[in-house]
Design a binder for these strands. Structure first.
Length: 465
RNA sequence: GCUUCCUUAGCUCAGUCGGUUAGAGCAUCUGACUGUUAAUCAGGGGGUCCUAGGUUCAAGUCCUAGAGGGAGCGCCA
């Protein structure tokens, strides 16, 4: 008989009809007359109840049906006599696909910490929490593709392996086929990469932005969505060595247009979650973060604050005058630290903030310089709890200005001639931003640690699964 | 990388001022129960107290070093 997925079985109205479901046993309980099996197949956070009449099935037959075992169940779909569900399956035929020794199966019915589950990342998708998180993760990916597709963007694939060493801040993972125990060096003691796979030093990308700009200079509106790698020794609940990033790049827009897109896009994603992940969000709201759904609604119902950096500094200095203590100073020209961002977002405004027009020296070389000569047109979106969720900017489109900035910063651009060609041939005003996919998921799921919103987290000293 | 906290049963944790045989809940096993909802009730089994040194008559508890993990910060998305 053909398998019905549980999300459909629970909605079925074909009472009295035979049905076949497959899944993993969450629990079995009962008495000497009847046994109840809670079965989950991942299609929904909800389980379907299988009822085994012990006059038809012996305890011996049901013995392998333990928490974690995988079974197929055939029976009649009937209205439930119990209170917890509307339909259930009266078991007529049982197939055991895979047993799970209850003495050794690590997933308990309750009381599992996130830290412990990280040590069994190969099994944690079978828990309610991670099932919900990963279904939401999929939905957010679909929301992102749908948003951009509907708004006329093209999905542009930028390379994961790159030979340019100035993509942006960030240590890179080197990619090589060389024998690391016997490296060929030149006369100056430098490693000779001429016989390496690419004939030059190569690394995993830290950003697709520079190549994304090339796409925008031809297709008008593009976005990238792929993995990104940072070899930094960051030990925080907000950093991964391997994470996914979304980077739209749009020609012929200015700073205000960019902020409109950032805000519209992120609200679209949050709204998508509320519209499409109701059951999972309700679960997370109940067990992980009691204020989750309310917070999601508050974000889509409010206008983000648009705050120039200089005004932000004024607010922070005013707070200091009124007695607020910060660990770090906040003078004009300093990069804001987490405590400053959190004060603005969580205490002063109480809503997301798009901070703009940063001092040029604390931002990347490619950002468009304002007429004051001191600030650049960055537009970072700061969220409560998680800090910077989007880093965006208008790009410097003028060849001479961009080149002067590169010289001033002494950035090695010898391998970047192709990037400068965008400004050399048919340059256009353009802007874009980068959104950390897992940081969006932190916000949407209410999870506390970024390692718990990606199936197999990669962090310093951790790449087991 | 810096600061700080944690590591006791399969899991979550308690363990007082250093003092007899290290406890609880859940899980598991056995039994009971006529429909359960993280089922309930009764009983049983289960310990390298992270590792290595040290102090002490005596160490889960104090000291030193190491390992692993969390949090805060830095860097960033």
């Amino acid at each position: 008989m053909k398998r019905t997925v549980i999300i459909d079985a629970l909605k079925s109205t074909a009472l009295g009809e035979p049905i076949h479901v497959c899944g993993w046993v969450r629990s079995r309980r009962g008495n000497k007359n009847v046994s109840f099996i809670a079965l989950n197949d991942g299609s929904t956070i909800k389980n379907i109840q299988i009822v085994a009449d012990l006059s038809k099935f012996s305890e011996e037959q049901l013995k392998p049906v333990t928490t974690g075992a995988c079974i197929g169940a055939t029976g009649l779909l009937v209205a439930s006599q119990g209170a917890g569900q509307s339909v259930e399956i009266q078991l007529t035929e049982l197939e055991v696909f895979g047993t799970a020794d209850p003495e050794k199966y690590p997933l308990q019915k309750k009381g599992l910490s996130m830290e412990y589950l990280r040590t069994i990342a190969h099994l944690r998708p079978r828990t309610n929490t991670f099932g919900a998180v990963f279904r939401i993760r999929h939905n957010m990916a679909m929301a992102i593709h749908t948003y951009f597709h509907e708004h006329g963007y093209f999905y542009f694939h930028t390379p994961l392996i790159t030979a340019s060493d100035c993509e942006g801040a960030g240590q890179m993972f080197q990619v090589t086929t060389k024998n690391l125990y016997n490296l060929k060096k030149d006369d100056n003691g430098q490693i000779d990469y001429s016989d390496d796979f690419f004939g030059r030093q190569a690394a995993l990308t830290v950003s697709g932005q520079l190549e994304g700009e090339l796409g925008a200079m031809a297709l008008g509106k593009i976005y990238t969505f792929g993995p990104t790698f940072r070899a930094e020794n960051s030990n925080t609940p907000r950093h991964l060595a391997e994470f996914w990033m979304i980077e739209p790049e749009v020609a012929f827009i200015d700073k205000d247009d960019l902020m409109d897109i950032e805000e519209d896009f992120i609200k679209y994603c949050v709204r998508w979650a509320l519209d499409n992940c109701k059951d999972d969000l309700e679960f997370l709201n109940q067990y992980v973060d009691k204020g989750l759904i309310e917070r999601l609604h508050s974000v889509i119902d409010t206008d983000f604050v648009r705050l120039p950096y200089t005004e932000g500094i004024n607010i922070l200095q005013e707070a200091v005058k009124n007695g607020h203590k910060f660990e770090f100073p906040c003078n004009w020209g300093d990069d804001l630290s987490s405590e400053h961002e959190r004060y603005l977002v969580e205490q002063h405004f109480g809503k997301p903030v798009i901070m703009t027009d940063y001092p040029r020296d604390i931002k990347a070389f490619y950002m468009k310089i304002n007429e004051d000569g001191k600030t650049v047109q960055g537009t970072d979106v700061l969220f409560p709890q998680i800090g910077e969720i989007i880093g965006g900017s208008v790009r410097e489109a003028d060849f001479d200005k961009l080149n002067a900035e590169i010289d001033r910063r002494q950035i090695p651009m010898k391998d970047m001639w192709w990037y400068l060609d965008t400004r050399r041939f048919g340059s256009a005003p353009h802007a874009g931003f980068g959104l950390g996919f897992e940081r969006l998921l932190l916000f949407v799921t209410g999870m506390q640690n970024i390692r718990d919103v990606i199936p197999f987290p990669r962090t310093p000293k951790n790449a087991e699964f």
